[in-house]
Amino acid sequence: MMQAPMIAATNPNCPIAIVANHKLSLPPGACPFVVNPNGNGKIRIRLISASNLISADANGYSDPYIKVKSTSIDSMKVTKVIEKNLNPVWNEEVVLDISSVGRELFIFDVYDSDKVGNDDLLGFVGVDLSLLPLGIEVLTCENLSFAKHGVLQIGITALDFGLTNIPPNYLHAYTEWRNTLPGHQRKEFKKLKKHKDSCGPYANKVVHEDYKVTNGYLKRKKSKREKTAKGFVKGLKIAGKVSLKVLDSATEDD
């Protein structure tokens, strides 16, 4: 006999969920987090669409696709490539196993596929799995970080873990929270790092090695290619300064 899916119970007497300062808050202990004894779980992800992506190609378009990653998943391509499109529609679905649903930050990377060279990152977003309701799909439009603009529409269901005994407004509050979380460009993280009194929503989460959490916000580390390019530019600048000094010295000798 097939087991009925587990679904979060709604408690009309539970204090409401509140969205403030880019965080979703619940009264301590009000909504138990149901999880397997070993902390693992399954999630179903619907990769629906993206809109207003940045152009990464000379033709004014991108060829977007999505990868997902976490500490459980090194890096996995989960959609097809849609060529020459800044508003792609995938409508694809995948079920994934996660090792530690209470601690891991699940990451979506949107890439531009290139036939020559490395694929370009068009933006990313992280999702805290520990705030998902048990067995209920949440549909959100996520503002991408790293890029100047771009939105990713996804649906996520925690199949065998999640919050239960949730307040009646929880799904609405969760959607509002995710839809209004701002995307951050790389240059903005210097400011975010300084504001210790305004910590982001992802404090104490563990992330994939390509990322780190800075003052509660998800930040992508520089890739080896970017570090090499930066070192090359720095070398050119140093070489230029040395050349100028040598030229100035020769002029003075004359």
Rank of each mutant, 00 (worst) to 15 (best):
L163P: 04
D160R: 01
Y211T: 05
G183F: 10
D160C: 01
D210Y: 11
K212D: 09
H172N: 15
P201A: 00
K148Q: 12
P167G: 01
C141A: 15
V213W: 02
E188F: 05
K212I: 14
V151F: 02
Q153P: 15
I156W: 03
C199I: 13
L144A: 05
A147Y: 07
L144Q: 03
C199P: 13
L181P: 05
G162K: 05
A173R: 10
T140F: 08
L181Y: 06
K212W: 09
T157F: 07
S145Q: 06
T140A: 10
H195C: 13
E209V: 14
H149W: 11
E176D: 15
H184A: 06
I156D: 07
L152V: 06
E142M: 15
N143W: 10
H208N: 13
K196L: 06
Q153R: 15
E188R: 08
I154E: 04
I156E: 00
K187I: 09
D210H: 09
K205M: 01
K193N: 10
I156N: 05
L181S: 03
P201L: 00
K190Q: 15
T164W: 03
E188S: 11
L171P: 11
Q153E: 14
N179A: 03
A147P: 07
R178I: 04
C199N: 12
L152R: 05
V207K: 04
K148F: 12
F189V: 02
V213L: 03
K212T: 02
K196T: 11
I156S: 04
K190T: 13
A147N: 04
H172D: 12
K196R: 08
D197G: 10
L192Q: 03
T180H: 14
P168K: 11
R186K: 15
K148N: 08
C141N: 15
N204R: 08
E176I: 14
N204T: 03
N179E: 01
N169E: 00
E188V: 03
H184F: 08
C199H: 14
G183L: 02
L152Y: 00
W177D: 01
E188W: 07
H195Q: 10
F189D: 03
N165A: 07
Y202R: 00
L163N: 02
E176C: 10
V207N: 00
S198T: 11
E176P: 13
K196A: 14
Q185R: 12
K194Y: 11
L171E: 13
Q185K: 13
I166V: 01
G155Y: 05
K194N: 09
I166A: 01
H172V: 09
D160P: 04
L159A: 06
N165L: 08
Y211W: 10
E209T: 14
Q185P: 09
L181R: 04
L181E: 01
T140V: 14
T180R: 05
T180F: 15
E209P: 14
K196N: 09
L139Q: 12
P201I: 04
Y202E: 04
A147D: 09
G162V: 04
G162W: 00
A173C: 12
P168A: 06
E176N: 10
N169W: 08
L192G: 02
K191A: 15
K148I: 15
C199Q: 08
H208A: 13
A173D: 04
L171W: 08
F161V: 03
T157G: 07
V207R: 05
P167H: 05
H172T: 13
V138K: 05
